[in-house]
Deep mutational scan, measured.
Amino acid sequence: MGKSNSKLKPEVVEELTRKTYFTEKEVQQWYKGFIKDCPSGQLDAAGFQKIYKQFFPFGDPTKFATFVFNVFDENKDGRIEFSEFIQALSVTSRGTLDEKLRWAFKLYDLDNDGYITRNEMLDIVDAIYQMVGNTVELPEEENTPEKRVDRIFAMMDKNADGKLTLQEFQEGSKADPSIVQALSLYDGLV
């Protein structure tokens, strides 16, 4: 993909415009910024974590950033290329609610087996709590990752089998306004 070129080839721009919710001009602008920050044309896990640390200076986002990195890194080569970056950004910032929920499901399904187990969710929720640090005051019933996961599973795990399917996750998330709101945070920002 033209590693350190400051412009993408027209056919690449066209393809990314088809695969995302961005215009050709927006794709070019994002590429310019991506190459400025990642001259090699790729972003590794350490660089990704560094970006998260800028956004969450009062907590430790390392663990959460690693989980997000793994979802962005579609081809699992340990690096995020621009096409992976822009497609994930498109879903998280401008995707439909169902697209965002499928993306979030992939984030929580750490072993990619098609289910979110209690332990997988606990890993992610714990990482989120570490990331936000003491900057967020949580209600008593959610002031630990374990309590939050218990509440989520009580609401979403309809067949009580200890794991969530994509359908259970989507339906449960849509029924909880706070989850829908959290997924909409990026709307309109890009």
Rank of each mutant, 00 (worst) to 15 (best):
G2R: 01
G2E: 01
G2Q: 00
K3V: 04
S4P: 09
S4E: 02
S4F: 02
S4D: 04
N5P: 14
N5E: 12
N5T: 15
S6T: 05
S6N: 02
K7C: 06
K7P: 03
K7V: 02
L8V: 02
L8K: 10
K9A: 05
V12A: 11
V12L: 14
V12P: 02
V13S: 10
E14D: 07
E15P: 15
E15Q: 03
L16V: 15
L16P: 15
T17G: 08
T17S: 07
K19N: 14
K19S: 02
T20G: 01
Y21F: 11
Y21Q: 08
F22P: 00
T23G: 10
T23S: 02
E24I: 00
K25Q: 12
K25W: 15
K25E: 10
E26R: 02
E26C: 15
V27S: 15
Q29V: 07
Q29P: 14
W30N: 01
W30T: 02
Y31L: 15
K32Y: 14
G33S: 08
F34D: 09
F34S: 05
F34T: 13
I35R: 15
K36S: 10
K36C: 09
K36F: 04
K36L: 08
D37Y: 08
D37I: 00
P39D: 03
P39K: 00
P39T: 00
P39M: 10
S40K: 06
G41Q: 14
Q42H: 06
Q42P: 10
D44I: 14
D44C: 08
A46V: 09
G47N: 07
G47T: 00
F48S: 13
F48D: 12
Q49M: 00
K50W: 15
K50A: 07
K50N: 10
K50R: 07
I51L: 11
I51Y: 02
Y52N: 12
K53H: 00
K53L: 05
K53Y: 05
Q54N: 13
Q54V: 00
Q54P: 03
F55M: 04
F55W: 08
F56H: 14
F56R: 01
P57T: 02
P57M: 08
P57V: 04
F58L: 02
G59S: 10
G59M: 01
G59V: 09
G59W: 03
G59C: 09
G59F: 10
G59N: 03
G59D: 08
G59K: 06
D60E: 05
T62I: 06
K63V: 04
K63F: 02
K63M: 07
F64S: 11
A65Q: 12
A65S: 09
A65Y: 10
T66M: 00
T66G: 11
F67R: 13
V68W: 12
F69A: 04
V71G: 04
D73E: 11
E74S: 13
N75C: 10
N75Y: 13
K76T: 05
D77I: 01
R79S: 01
I80K: 15
I80F: 12
E81K: 08
F82Q: 12
S83D: 01
S83Y: 07
S83F: 08
S83K: 15
S83G: 05
E84A: 07
E84R: 10
F85Y: 04
I86C: 12
Q87H: 10
S90R: 13
S90C: 14
S90A: 11
V91S: 03
V91N: 05
V91M: 05
V91G: 12
R94L: 15
R94V: 11
G95D: 08
G95Y: 00
T96N: 12
T96Y: 04
T96H: 14
T96M: 05
T96L: 04
L97K: 01
L97N: 07
D98A: 07
D98G: 09
D98S: 00
E99S: 10
K100P: 00
L101P: 03
L101R: 06
F105N: 00
L107D: 02
L107E: 02
L107C: 04
Y108F: 10
Y108V: 04
D109M: 00
L110A: 01
L110C: 07
D111E: 13
N112C: 07
N112W: 00
N112L: 06
N112Y: 09
Y115C: 10
Y115G: 08
Y115L: 00
Y115K: 05
I116S: 01
I116R: 00
I116A: 01
I116V: 05
I116D: 13
T117Q: 02
T117K: 03
T117L: 01
R118M: 09
N119C: 15
N119F: 08
N119I: 07
E120W: 02
E120S: 10
E120L: 04
M121R: 02
L122M: 14
D123F: 04
D123T: 08
D123H: 11
I124D: 03
V125D: 07
V125G: 07
D126Q: 14
D126N: 15
A127K: 06
I128H: 03
I128F: 11
I128A: 13
I128N: 05
I128R: 05
Q130K: 11
Q130V: 13
M131P: 03
M131W: 01
V132D: 06
V132W: 02
V132L: 05
G133D: 07
G133T: 01
G133N: 02
G133R: 08
N134C: 02
N134D: 05
T135N: 03
V136E: 10
V136N: 02
V136K: 02
V136P: 08
L138G: 07
L138I: 08
L138P: 04
P139I: 10
P139C: 05
E141A: 04
E142I: 06
N143C: 03
N143R: 06
N143Q: 11
N143I: 08
T144I: 10
T144Y: 01
T144P: 14
T144F: 02
T144G: 10
P145S: 04
P145E: 14
P145L: 05
P145T: 08
E146G: 15
K147C: 11
K147N: 06
K147R: 10
R148A: 09
R148H: 04
V149F: 08
V149L: 07
V149T: 01
D150G: 08
D150I: 11
R151F: 05
R151Y: 13
R151I: 02
R151G: 06
F153N: 02
F153A: 07
F153T: 00
F153S: 05
A154V: 09
A154P: 06
M155S: 08
M155F: 11
M155I: 12
M156R: 07
M156S: 03
D157A: 11
D157T: 07
K158A: 00
K158L: 05
N159M: 09
N159S: 05
N159H: 02
N159I: 02
A160N: 06
A160Y: 04
D161T: 14
G162C: 01
G162K: 08
G162L: 06
K163R: 13
K163T: 01
T165A: 10
L166T: 12
L166R: 08
Q167Y: 10
E168V: 12
Q170S: 08
E171T: 01
E171W: 01
G172L: 14
S173M: 00
S173G: 03
S173W: 02
K174M: 11
D176K: 08
P177I: 04
S178L: 04
S178W: 00
I179N: 06
I179Y: 14
I179S: 13
V180I: 02
V180N: 14
Q181E: 08
A182Q: 14
Y186E: 07
Y186R: 03
Y186Q: 13
D187K: 10
G188A: 08
G188P: 00
G188C: 00
L189F: 11
L189H: 13
V190M: 11
V190T: 07
